[in-house]
Simulated assay, not measured.
Amino acid sequence: MTANLLKPYALNNTINLSNRILMAPLTRCMADDNLVPTQLMAEYYARRAEAGLIISEAVIIRPDGQGFPNTPGLFSPAQIEGWKIVTAAVHKNGGKIFAQLWHTGRVAHPYFYGNGDADASVLAPSAIGVEGTVPRMRELTYKIPKAVTVEEMKTLVADYGQAAENAIKAGFDGVEIHGANGYLIDQFLHHDSNRRNDEYGGSSENMVRFPLEVIDEIISKIGADRTGLRVSPGAYFNMTGDSKDRAVFDLLLPELEQRNLAFLHIGIFDDSMEFDYLGGRASSYVRENYSKTLVGVGSYSAEAASSAINDDKFDLIAIGRPFIANPDYVAKIRNNEPLTSYSDEMLTSLI
């Protein structure tokens, strides 16, 4: 029933995957206090190298992008050296790995980067905050962000490009730009979080401008064949949906189609969710408007993913929490063996 998941897949002329099962990005908060990947992280990823492609946990591109404790970075020499150990371990076991490049935007917190200055700026498209507290550090409440200036956006674009170059230097096979799940790039794409009235907000054409500038900068540094993107057309995490969001993504998806990305990846926790303004599931909406390699995700079993691929709903499947519980997930699918069930206590260690 799942034989199609185990077939090779060519992303492009540069990268061939041994199967259609991707390890989804999974934030583990296990880097050291300098945000350097550890030996335990290298072993953790190496045990999962049979995935057709590993997408790393989200990796912050610069200090003010941090919104969770001990999330690894890709902006210092030490961090690059630490990732070299990880990528070498994955490659030694025959795997491929992309770095997911991340800036959390308005859910960053100056506790992590403010050097004691609790009033250090949090950057976002608009000065619209979110309610709540920082995951795993509930004593920290979110701050009202500062609307990023056009000059600051130019620096952010350059920093995304530098992080992509750093990823290749660290031995990654490519990068996935995190443009989903309510973080910085996604904040520009939704009316709830983007209330600007300059060239980066107001109209669909303006709202896609910053994301496309980031994508084009990264492509110019490492090539479209090594660049993937994750998107969340349906607003559902740390933001409220708006029917006008549909027009933004109606414009964005054809622009992405022209750029020949390695893949486009749906960012959603549960793909059974439906959005009125998208006419149903986010994955169905994207498939109807984007013809190139699409990665599905969102609580799929191997059997359900296999059926969806057979039905041309997407081309590849990203598996999340089951990969935490089953380092040998691919082998178990191949051998039709039962999977170990995921439980939250598994987040306390890297196994």
Score class of each variant (00 low, 15 high):
1 M>V: 14
1 M>G: 15
4 N>S: 13
11 L>P: 01
12 N>T: 00
16 N>Q: 10
17 L>G: 00
19 N>F: 04
22 L>A: 07
24 A>P: 01
25 P>W: 03
28 R>L: 13
28 R>P: 05
30 M>E: 10
32 D>P: 01
34 N>S: 15
38 T>M: 14
40 L>E: 15
41 M>L: 13
43 E>H: 09
48 R>H: 06
49 A>P: 02
49 A>N: 06
52 G>M: 01
53 L>F: 05
56 S>M: 07
56 S>H: 04
61 I>W: 02
63 P>C: 11
63 P>A: 15
64 D>L: 10
67 G>P: 04
68 F>K: 12
69 P>E: 12
71 T>F: 07
73 G>D: 06
73 G>I: 11
73 G>R: 06
80 I>L: 11
81 E>L: 13
90 V>K: 01
91 H>G: 07
93 N>F: 08
95 G>A: 13
99 A>T: 04
100 Q>I: 13
100 Q>L: 12
101 L>Q: 04
103 H>E: 11
103 H>W: 03
103 H>R: 10
107 V>C: 06
108 A>S: 15
110 P>C: 12
110 P>H: 08
112 F>D: 05
113 Y>W: 08
116 G>Y: 07
116 G>P: 02
117 D>E: 12
123 L>V: 12
131 E>C: 10
132 G>F: 05
132 G>R: 07
132 G>L: 11
133 T>S: 13
134 V>D: 04
135 P>S: 12
136 R>K: 14
138 R>F: 13
143 K>P: 01
145 P>T: 09
145 P>Q: 08
147 A>S: 14
148 V>I: 15
150 V>H: 05
152 E>I: 10
152 E>A: 10
159 D>R: 14
161 G>N: 04
162 Q>E: 12
163 A>N: 05
167 A>V: 06
168 I>W: 00
170 A>M: 07
173 D>T: 02
174 G>E: 02
177 I>D: 01
181 N>S: 13
182 G>E: 05
190 H>Q: 14
194 N>T: 11
197 N>R: 13
198 D>C: 08
199 E>D: 13
202 G>S: 08
206 N>R: 09
208 V>W: 03
208 V>R: 04
208 V>G: 01
210 F>R: 03
214 V>F: 06
222 I>K: 03
224 A>F: 01
227 T>C: 01
229 L>K: 01
231 V>T: 07
232 S>I: 09
232 S>V: 08
236 Y>I: 15
236 Y>G: 10
237 F>M: 14
239 M>S: 12
243 S>I: 14
244 K>R: 14
245 D>T: 11
251 L>D: 04
253 L>Y: 03
256 L>R: 02
259 R>V: 00
259 R>H: 01
263 F>H: 03
264 L>E: 00
265 H>Y: 06
272 S>V: 13
277 Y>E: 08
277 Y>R: 05
280 G>Y: 04
282 A>S: 15
283 S>W: 03
283 S>K: 07
285 Y>I: 06
287 R>K: 15
289 N>P: 03
292 K>L: 04
298 G>S: 10
299 S>M: 15
300 Y>T: 09
300 Y>M: 12
302 A>L: 08
309 I>N: 02
314 F>K: 00
318 A>Y: 00
323 F>T: 07
324 I>E: 02
326 N>P: 03
326 N>C: 12
327 P>A: 12
327 P>T: 11
328 D>I: 11
328 D>E: 08
333 I>L: 08
335 N>V: 09
339 L>V: 09
339 L>Y: 05
340 T>I: 12
348 T>Y: 11
350 L>V: 07
350 L>C: 08
351 I>T: 14
